[in-house]
Computed example of a mutant assay.
Amino acid sequence: MSEQIERGGRATGSAWQAFAIDLAHCIRFYSRLPVPALPWEQDAHALPSFPRLVRVIPLAGLVIGLLPAAVLGFAMLLDLGPWLAAALSVAAMVLTTGALHEDGLGDTADSFGGTTIEKRLEIMRDSRIGSFGASALFLALALRIGALATLAARVDGEVAIAAVLIVASLSRTAGLMPLVFLPPARRDGLSQAVGQPARETFWFAAGIAGAIAVVLGALAGLPSAGIALMLVLSGLSGLALTRFAARHLGGQTGDIAGAAQQVAEIAALIGLLTVLEA
């Protein structure tokens, strides 16, 4: 049945058109991928509405993970070695996202230099990076490359590709948790402007992300314990960053969501590695 859904200043003609618009907006927001304007879109670059986009974020994560996964698989096929393959894959992800999540992690780490909530929020808005932020970025990149290199050394290219896609979907879904379960820390921040997603919509997205992990993992032959650990650890990472933000900032910001994605990505990869034979 056709339904009229208002989006970007124009009512779309059907539910699938609204879904396609939401997915396009989500990929544009989370990445630098050149997504063309859809025929029924009025404004392809309008500020997205997160209450609507949450449901498609697991699928957007899959799309965003395609290039890094392909780079990892191709580098392994060329026998470039696990470390170079992993570094190329992480570089592809950073280029694909425009370092969106890395920026959030760096700003969040720099906020440790503030002694009050107000000072921490002020530091997070500063575009300059400090010693905390630089250290966090270095460690996060090292952990991601190290985890992918270990993965590439233990499994075939097809399995590694599936793992990258699963992590790309799970980690971006986990990154939503602070936005869903906490109020905005600022009244004039981006997280306030894009709206707070409903918890019911988040749980729907979490179910989709979980289904993606189970299906892709099963098709690739990943151990069920590894898939379970990826699900559990990515969720626990999102929860941990949510609780941290509540105490540290009194609410959530977009930077916290970016930091949650980075931590969830690392945790999910390490969880998978703990059950893969060396």
Score class of each variant (00 low, 15 high):
Leu78Phe: 09
Thr108Tyr: 05
Ala92Asn: 01
Ala92Thr: 07
Arg154His: 14
Asp126Ile: 00
Ile166Arg: 00
Thr97Arg: 08
Asp156His: 12
Ser135Tyr: 08
Gly81Phe: 05
Ala109Ile: 04
Trp83Pro: 03
Leu148Phe: 10
Ser127Glu: 12
Arg125Val: 00
Met124Asn: 07
Gly113Tyr: 00
Gly133Tyr: 04
Ala140Met: 13
Leu148Asp: 03
Ser131Leu: 14
Glu102Asp: 11
Met76Asn: 02
Ala152Cys: 08
Met93Trp: 12
Thr115Phe: 15
Leu80Ser: 01
Asp110Met: 00
Asp79Phe: 14
Arg125Trp: 05
Leu143Phe: 12
Asp103Gly: 15
Leu88Asp: 05
Asp110Trp: 00
Leu95His: 12
Ala147Ile: 09
Arg128Lys: 12
Leu88Gln: 05
Ala87Gly: 05
Glu158Gln: 13
Ala86Asn: 06
Val90Ile: 15
Leu139Met: 13
Thr116Glu: 10
Ala85Lys: 04
Ala160Met: 10
Ala160Arg: 11
Asp79Met: 14
His101Thr: 06
Leu151Gln: 09
Ala87Ile: 02
Glu158Tyr: 10
Leu121His: 03
Ala134Gly: 14
Trp83Glu: 12
Asp103Ala: 11
Leu141Ala: 14
Ile129Ala: 12
Thr96Met: 12
Arg120Tyr: 05
Arg125Gly: 14
Val155Cys: 13
Ala153Gly: 13
Leu148Gly: 02
Val164Arg: 02
Val164Met: 13
Ala99Phe: 09
Arg120Val: 06
Ser89Gln: 03
Leu137Arg: 04
Val94Trp: 15
Ala160Trp: 10
Pro82Cys: 13
Thr116Pro: 04
Asp79Ser: 15
Leu84Phe: 15
Ser131Asp: 09
Glu118Lys: 14
Ser131Glu: 13
Leu95Ile: 13
Ser135Gly: 12
Ile117Arg: 15
Glu118Asp: 12
Ala152Leu: 06
Leu88Pro: 02
Leu80Tyr: 08
Ile123His: 07
Asp110Thr: 00
Val90Ala: 09
Ala91His: 02
Val155Glu: 06
Ala153Arg: 08
Thr97His: 05
Ser131Arg: 14
Phe112Val: 05
Ala142Ser: 12
Ser135Asp: 02
Leu100Val: 03
Ile123Lys: 09
Gly81Glu: 01
Met93Arg: 15
Ala152Gln: 09
Leu148Cys: 04
Ala147Phe: 10
Ala140Lys: 01
Thr108Trp: 09
Val94Lys: 10
Val90Asp: 00
Glu122Trp: 07
Ala134Thr: 11
Leu137Thr: 05
Thr150Glu: 15
Leu84Gly: 02
